[in-house]
Structures are given as C-alpha cells and as structure tokens.
Design a protein around this nucleic acid. Structure first.
Lengths: 214, 214
DNA sequence: TGTACATCAGTGAACGCGCGTTCACTGATGTAC
DNA sequence: TGTACATCAGTGAACGCGCGTTCACTGATGTAC
C-alpha cells in the first residue's frame, strides 16, 4: 500500500485512493477543534480539509462521534506517554519526578489544547466508547503510580489513601489547566504562571501530608 | 405591564405579547444546556420552547451568543450569592465558613449544571462580554475574601500571598467539580463523594500552609 | 373620560447555508492460479 | 509473468433538516392632550 498523500496541508491528491485518510481526518479534527472548540468540529469539514468527498469518512468511522472518541482516545494515549516520560522512572527521586509530571501535565494542556479539549470537553458520554475510557484509565494509573511512589519514598507518619492523593493531584492539575493553562486565549490572566501555581499548590499539599522535599 | 405568561412549561400564551419573554428565554436556555450541553443550545429552539416565533428573541438579544453570555452572567451572580450565603460572614469562624463555602461551590455545580456549563464551557470569549466578565470577577472576589479571612484568623508563621491561596482554592474546587461533581451523568465514578474529596483537599492544603482547625 | 398616536414586542414567511447521512457507482489494489 | 476477479476505498449527487437571520407587517400598550 503505497502512501500517496501529499505533504502540505492543502493536499491535492494524485490518485483515487487517499492512502492515509484516517490519519488525515484525525489531523483535520485536531485543527478544527483547536480553532473552534470541540463543538465546532464537523464531519463534513474534516472531509473537506482532507480533500475528500463528504461520504469518504464513513469508510473509517461509523459517525462523527466515533471520530471524536478516537481523537480523545489518542489524546489520552499521548497524554500517558508524556506523563510517563516526565516521570522518568522516578528519577532522580519520586518527589522531583512528581513535579516534572505536573509540568508535563500543564505542558500537554497548553501545547495540545485540541487533544485536551477532546478528552475533557467532548460532549459525548465516554461510557459509550470503552476504548476511550480505557485509555483515560491508563492515563490516570500513571498519575496514581507516581503518587504511590512519592508516598512510599517519604513514608509520612500517617499514610493517606493513595487513591485519594491521586484524585487530589489530578484535580489540582486539571483545575489549574482548565482555568489558567489553556493554549488558546480562553484563559484568565493572573500574575503567576500556571506552572508556578501548580508547583506551589502541590508543594503545599504534600507539606500538608507531612511530605517535604528531600 | 401585566404579566401574562402562564405558569406551566408548555406555556400557551393568551395574548399577542408574551410579557416575560426574556425570562422565558433564559429558562429555555438553561433547560437546553442542562440536557444537551452548552453547544446543544440554539436560539431557534429556545424560541420554540418559549412558545414564540423564531424572530422574537431578536427583540431582546442581539444574537445567540449574547443570550449565552447573559446566562453565564446570571450564573455568576447566582454563584456569588450562594458563596456569600455559605460564607455567612465568617461564622462561626473563618475556617468553618470556608468549608461551608467549598460545599456550596460543589452544590452549585451539581444542582445548576446548566449555569455552571454556561459559565465555564461556553464557547465564547468573555472578553467580548464585559458584564459577564465583571460578574465572574465579583464571584472570585467572594472566594478571595474568604481566603483572606482565613489567613487573618490563623496568622500562620509565614503568610502566603492571598491571591495565590484564592487561586489554589478556586482550582481545587473547579477541578473536583468538573471531574467528579457535575449534576449530569458525565462525571467519573470514584469511591468518595466530591464533597469529601474537596473537604480533604482543602484541609490538607491549609495544613500545608500551617493552618489547622481551631 | 375619550381619543389619536407613537412605540413596543410580537408574527410568519422566506432566505441561504452547512450539516449528517445514504446510495448506487467506480477506480485502484492485491491475490490466486 | 499474465490475467481474472474480489475487495477495498473512494466519488458525487441527493435527501431532509434545523439553524441564524432578515423583512415588512401588525396587534397591544401607554401616553399626551
């Protein structure tokens, strides 16, 4: 199967078959979501942008929502990778690695607002898309594993439930990302960067758990 | 100006003039947003639900987004009221009052998902709607005042910047509300209530600031 | 108190548009022999 | 190596639909005198 799609975005094809339509649809969806929000993405326009008739996408996705769910699923997969990388197997130590993970969280929301929007603002119920949900769960497990390692390393006097800590870290990250750390212009302006805000929040929180740097 | 709108939802009018169309449009918008999300709300359907021709809303709002912004603005106003009530002038003490405010935050997101969606997920830039933005700022000031009172009451060894603390409290609340505490079914299921999660998060955070109950 | 009139808040028909989706179809590709 | 054929991945025309918005209009209301 030779790959005949062209490199540019305008993309006139040379052959009857596109050769890479699925990927092109995902790319178009991301571009549309990032410029007009998850609600502004349409099947028809994605097709147009991929240089293909409006019926073509149906060879690859059952309907519009299925494509949306696939975007979200891929977003979660990429998100997991980024968090995993940042975690870097807990080096140099769990405490530092967790800060890096927090920065990676915000970096993802900032640099991939389209994925982030598809993941958290898609107007479809993820219970109808098990693959998407599973990918989301995997991403959460990465966060959770990090929290567990931090607790194991620090051995605070009273060890809190790992799940609770992970949910807290997720909430703090997501709260800051959605209020102040979006790549698009929708974020409120405040006199601190989202990164600084999250780092401080997590540090104070860990302090409250009896965990200090070192 | 006699008020001739009928009590029921179906609402057949008796006269040529509606008498209360603006309010009816807001009500319809809320109902639509809560059942189909902010993106699922249309001007035409709001008119239909108010029992009025599709041209009528233009007597009250310049366009669809203007109505959306008004819903968000009213949401922020109501939100401010609820937070203010819960704060109850800092009684019995600032620490307790802040917990009550946290519960009120989640209660608002849970019982008024339509307002909450309009406030935080409307796909319009609030810089274009100064009244909406001003209402949002007022709501934040309520949160901020609460944080300031808590700091004043507790006088921790090192007093952190009030603005930072307020942003943290807002982020934690919003993070938990949007991930776990929506009124609609979109929330993930976790083995703790959103209320418990937020209370614990704030307590641990305050502890980290050197502020303890009492 | 009655009446003329300005203003307000609706009507309803129409417009152009883009959407999702379907259909019978066809060009290109890969494979069996 | 050549050929017949199944399958795959497109086309393009068409459909019904609901949307936002506009227009000239009209019924109801409030007010000046």
């Amino acid at each position: 199967m030779s790959n005949q799609f062209t490199s540019g975005d305008g993309g006139e094809r040379r052959s009857y078959h596109h050769g890479n339509l699925k990927e092109a649809l995902i790319a178009a969806a991301l571009q549309l979501i990032s410029s007009k929000g998850p609600a502004g993405f349409t099947f028809a326009e994605a097709a147009r942008q991929a240089g293909v008739s409006p019926a073509a996408p149906y060879r690859h996705y059952r309907d519009r929502d299925m494509l949306m769910a696939d975007v979200a699923k891929r977003g979660f997969d990429l998100f997991s990778e980024r968090l995993e990388e940042a975690w870097n197997k807990g080096r140099p130590n769990a405490f530092e690695a967790m800060q890096a993970q927090g920065r990676a969280y915000l970096a993802f929301a900032r640099t991939e607002p389209a994925y982030y929007g598809a993941m958290f603002e898609k107007a479809i119920a993820d219970k109808d898309y098990p693959e998407c949900r599973a990918a989301a769960d995997r991403a959460f497990q990465v966060l959770r594993a990090g929290c567990e390692a931090v607790l194991d390393e620090a051995k605070p006097a009273r060890k809190p439930p790992v799940l609770m800590v992970a949910l807290h870290v997720w909430s703090m990250s997501h709260g800051i990302a959605s209020l102040f750390g979006r790549g698009d212009g929708a974020s409120r302006s405040v006199p601190m960067s989202a990164d600084d805000l999250l780092e401080a929040n997590v540090l104070i929180y860990l302090d409250g758990l009896g965990i200090r740097k070192g």
